[in-house]
Design a protein around this nucleic acid. Structure first.
Length: 650
DNA sequence: CCGGGCTTCT
DNA sequence: AGAAGCC
């Protein structure tokens, strides 16, 4: 007995960077806007694309073609992360226990199998209601959404948005349409409606039976539209016909998991074995390459061949993609990222420095890393940076996560040969606890990080145990914190006792911490207090970062504190959700914000969400390519400026 | 295969 | 710790 079919929704926020900038600055609505990053155009609004801007990327070229183009600097991603998180939390709260997976900043996958199943069971036997059928949401323990219960839809109406295969209006009938996929499509429509009205971001969606195909069909009609695969895999023959028709003409690259490496390997094999695939490409982005399609690969090769070329497991997985099978589960994304990193790149000039120059660059990065930690991991931090009223000043700002490791990655050299991922070396070390102490100025904490451990890590990488060198060459420096913990770093506390990380000289005597650790299970009493290490100064404990101090106090049962230590941190997801949701409701209630980020009137967008007559679509944000005038390499337009710095370097 | 930021597999 | 994948 085969497992029941899943139902997967794929959401994609339309033109997200521009849309976010328009929420920040509504005067940009309806105008041609370009978002600029590092001297290149990261993305352009639909108005700008209509004026020919999307075909190029250098800034002056863009300005030439479209003098009215408004450039916005998008190098600081804070705003985009903020909205990305808002959308994630909203969707998650609507879907209860369903897994919601974040892909990058602007995409989500949702496995709504169980939700839809429950919905159908609940509504199966109830008598018809003139309003249609009630899709109940946010039940049970997700008590966050007291104001939110579900929505009505008409089970005998057509599927919202577009369908695959397309409806034949002459035979159009819901008889063949699986109830579950119809319900899921209405659910997706409802979620898009919520994201639009509560947050102000338009989105597109795909509804299908796995992630790859949901994403694929979702990309077929954009923006502000959705597309549903309306044939069930339980009707296996019809399903594979439809899916194969859909996939066969595609560039395999469009299938998630079919990366450039795999494609390259396959192409190599095909050309060296004179495999009978010959059709020369006419498409620009396939120039000089075999025009591989899903259909060609599928008909000319075998699963076994894929296995031997790409590894047994991976080969099989990729082969399955060609046949429209994708068993990748929708993985529930964690509330906070698992790593947070900052990175800068350097051309030949900037990237050739003596030792103190290297340290200066690392310090700059350390500062911006600390800023990000405060924005993203401290309660209320993101609101503060967005110029909204932060948490009450008297309320202590609490860390929501505690990274325990820090990692330095350096990519050396500027030779053209190396692959972008090669030549990277990294070293990691425990993250010193004082970084969490918000009473220490950020710049001081950054300097502390340099002293320990970043300078040492940099030496390990750059000197490789040899003698120091006059000049160091590198092209990328990255600093990351990893292993984000939900609890205060107790291990780090021990480390703190063992050696005060950043040399508070007076506290030299707090050394022998491990003696202080009690044999854990010496008797049955769990509540038994640890004894404070005898040589620890109570005043030093007072200077610990607040959260750490609480932990110490709790662990060791210190009582001679004037101010009572606050309770153990209690994390409440739902509370946070509501807090974030608040300011939007006001925003969307005011008349002047009653426009969608891409310039359409809200009312017209809402209207269009129920029918198919949407305005013309654009797509594939960043896929255009152009040959470099100097070396002829075909390069993504959005990276041409960066590419040019490459030439000027050598 | 350039950019910055993330995840996952090995 | 590094390679590779995705946006």
């Amino acid at each position: 007995m085969e497992p029941e079919a899943r139902i997967v929704l794929a959401f994609d926020l339309d033109n997200m960077y521009v849309a976010c900038e328009r929420l920040r600055n509504p005067s940009l609505v309806g105008k041609p806007v370009g978002v600029q990053q590092k001297g290149l155009l990261a993305t352009a609004s639909y108005e700008a694309r209509a004026l020919g801007v999307d075909k190029l990327c250098s800034l002056w070229e863009a300005k030439k073609r479209c003098p009215s183009l408004i450039l916005v600097n998008g190098e600081d991603l804070t705003l985009y992360r903020y909205y990305s998180r808002r959308v994630f939390l909203l969707v998650r709260s609507v879907l209860g226990d369903c897994p919601v997976e974040k892909l990058g900043m602007d995409e989500l996958f949702c496995d709504v199998t169980n939700l839809v199943k429950e919905h159908l069971q609940e509504t199966r036997d109830i008598s018809p209601d003139p309003r249609g059928r009630w899709f109940a949401l946010a039940r049970a323990e997700s008590g966050a959404l007291t104001d939110y219960k579900g929505f009505w839809y008409n089970p005998s109406s057509e599927c919202p948005g577009h369908t695959i295969p397309q409806y034949d209006p002459t035979v159009s009938d819901n008889a063949t349409l699986p109830e579950s996929i119809l319900a899921a499509s209405h659910l997706a429509n409802h979620i898009r409606h919520l994201v639009l009205t509560q947050i102000g971001l338009g989105s597109s969606a795909g509804i299908a039976y796995d992630k790859t195909i949901a994403k694929l069909v979702g990309n077929m009609h954009k923006p502000h539209q959705q597309t549903t695969l309306v044939v069930s895999p339980t009707a296996s023959e019809e399903y594979s016909t439809v899916v194969q028709t859909l996939l066969d003409p595609l560039n395999p690259h469009k299938l998630m998991g079919f990366g450039s490496k795999a494609l390259h390997t396959l192409r190599d094999y095909i050309s060296t074995t004179k495999y009978p695939i010959t059709s020369p490409s006419t498409k620009e982005d396939d120039r000089d390459e075999l025009a591989l399609t899903v259909g060609l690969l599928r008909s000319k090769m075998t699963a076994a061949l894929f296995g031997s070329l790409l590894g047994a497991q991976n080969g099989q997985k990729i082969w399955d993609l060609l046949e429209g099978r994708d068993n990748e589960p929708v993985k529930m994304s964690p509330e906070f990222p698992l790593t947070i990193s900052v990175e800068d790149s350097f051309d030949q000039q900037r990237g050739t420095l003596d030792w103190s120059g290297v340290l200066t660059e690392i310090e700059t990065l350390a500062n911006s890393l600390l800023r990000r930690l405060e924005i993203e991991l401290v309660d209320g931090g993101e609101l503060e940076t967005l110029g909204r009223e932060a948490v009450k000043p008297d309320r202590r700002r609490k860390w929501q996560r505690y990274p325990s490791q820090i990692r330095l990655t350096i990519r050396g050299g500027h030779s053209r040969q190396i692959a972008y991922n090669a030549n990277r070396e990294s070293r990691s070390a425990p993250l010193p606890v004082p970084v969490f102490d918000l009473d220490i100025p950020r710049t001081e904490r950054a300097q502390g990080l340099i002293r320990q451990p970043l300078a040492g890590l940099a030496k390990q990488i750059l000197d490789k145990g040899g003698e120091p060198v006059e000049k160091y060459e590198f092209s990328i420096i990255n600093i990351a914190v990893t292993n984000l913990q939900t609890t205060t770093p107790t291990k780090a506390i021990n480390a703190f006792f063992a050696a005060s990380p950043w040399d508070k000289q007076e506290n030299k005597r707090i050394r022998h911490s491990h003696e202080a650790k009690e044999p854990a299970s010496s008797n049955g009493s769990k509540r038994r207090r640890r004894t404070l290490p005898p040589d620890i100064d109570i005043n030093m404990i007072k200077e610990l970062p607040a959260d750490i101090r609480d932990e110490v106090v709790r662990e060791y049962g210190i009582i001679e504190f004037e101010e009572p230590p606050s309770k153990i941190i209690k994390r409440d997801v739902t509370e946070h959700t509501l807090e974030l949701a608040d300011d939007v409701n006001q925003a969307s209630a005011t008349p002047e914000s009653n426009t969608v980020a891409d310039g359409k009137k809200l009312s017209s967008v809402l209207e269009s969400m129920s029918d198919d007559g949407c305005w013309t679509s654009d797509d594939d944000d960043k896929k255009a390519m152009t040959p470099c005038t100097l070396c002829g390499a075909v390069i993504f337009d959005w990276s041409m400026a960066a590419h040019m710095t490459y030439h000027s370097g050598s």
